[in-house]
């Protein structure tokens, strides 16, 4: 299949705060192809989760939030739907069917008083109109598919009887119930232990190979990004600051923020000394800096041009965009970059 399954154009989100609107996401745009994994990376307050919730139409309605832009999802029959413009009923029909989402803490998304089999079956019945028996049968198949042993018995379990990893598998089973074309995973492994995290990542990769779904993977963990992503989009203070293929972005980051983020990931190398950190904190969205939002924390900042205006997203290579006015200068000064190559 050619062409993107999801295309987002100029997505902006603002939250009403008294009389004014506080911007949370500015002009986010990306495309997602079938079978592709796009990692959305950022720290708290970067706007990555708000972006995904806006796509799913899960933000509170206007006037509390203001969402503009377009999110074009290709339907089963090839027609294109703008998720941001459709009426609520139409969105509900697509949600869980063509586009699904899993969250960081599965416990808050599972209903504690229903058996997990019924919860998975419910979604199938709503979208596929199967009867209870057929839906439960399908639920059993789904539970097996996400690697939960003893599926028939687990159908009858309540959410609290499962471990965190198992609950996340149940959430994935529910999300996959109708073979969605797009799965949005919002920090799905953050609450899990590392050993379970690696299991879930392997599961998602395997399922993606089978179904060819497009995966939007939201995380703050660059180790996980390196593991799973084809392309990366780094967000800071509501804007995309760097995007491109996972190898160029992570081995030769052009935005100082991306470079700092990669350097501050602790490694198993026993190098000792101080850990690399990025000084300062993210800016208050109510009072953003006049120019580049990262400038106050950036080691390469110059008052001109960094503080003059918000830098545009510039091409720094094939499919590699960066929002930094000085990226070319910085790259020239730093080349050749031995840091990551040496470690590899």
């Amino acid at each position: 299949m050619a062409g993107p399954v999801l295309e987002v154009r100029g997505l902006s989100v603002g939250f009403a705060d008294g009389r004014r609107t506080v911007p949370a996401v500015h002009e986010v745009a990306f495309t997602l192809h079938p079978g592709e994994t796009l990692a959305l990376v950022g720290e708290s307050g970067s706007g990555k989760s708000v972006t995904s919730l806006a796509l799913m139409r899960l933000l509170p309605p206007a006037p509390r939030t203001r969402v503009t832009g377009a999110a074009l999802l290709r339907g089963r029959d090839g027609t294109v739907h703008d998720l941001l413009a459709l009426p609520d009923a139409a969105v509900r029909a697509l949600r869980g069917d063509r586009i699904a989402m899993i969250f960081q803490e599965p416990m808050t998304s599972l209903n504690p008083v229903h058996r997990i089999g019924d919860q998975i079956a419910e979604s199938v019945r709503f979208h596929r109109g199967l009867d209870r028996h057929a839906a439960l049968k399908r639920a059993e198949g789904l539970i097996e598919r996400v690697g939960i042993p003893d599926a028939a018995r687990r159908l009858r379990a309540y959410p609290h009887e499962l471990s965190g990893g198992m609950r996340q598998r149940v959430m994935i089973a529910m999300a996959l119930a109708c073979d969605p074309a797009v799965l949005i995973a919002d920090e799905p492994t953050t609450a899990l232990d590392v050993t379970v995290q690696s299991q879930i990542l392997a599961l998602l990769k395997g399922l993606q190979r089978e179904t060819g779904m497009g995966l939007v993977f939201i995380t703050h963990n660059l180790g996980v990004v390196a593991e799973i992503a084809d392309r990366v989009m780094v967000m800071y203070a509501g804007r995309i600051v760097e995007s491109g293929g996972v190898v160029p972005v992570m081995t030769a980051p052009r935005m100082p923020y991306t470079a700092g983020l990669i350097a501050s990931v602790p490694r198993l190398d026993l190098k000792g000394g101080e850990m690399v950190s990025i000084p300062g904190t993210v800016p208050d969205p109510r009072a953003p800096p006049p120019g580049c939002a990262f400038a106050p924390r950036c080691p390469h900042r110059r008052p001109t041009p960094c503080d003059e205006a918000v830098p545009p997203l510039e091409a720094a290579g094939a499919g590699h965009d960066v929002r930094c006015r000085r990226w070319a200068e910085i790259a020239a000064a730093a080349a050749p970059r031995p840091a990551l190559e040496a470690r590899a």
């Binding site: 590392v194 992503a229 992570m250 990551l340």
Partner: peptide, 8 residues
């Protein structure tokens, strides 16, 4: 299980 931030 520790993920390493190197896609290569």
């Amino acid at each position: 299980a520790v993920p390493i931030p190197d896609p290569t």
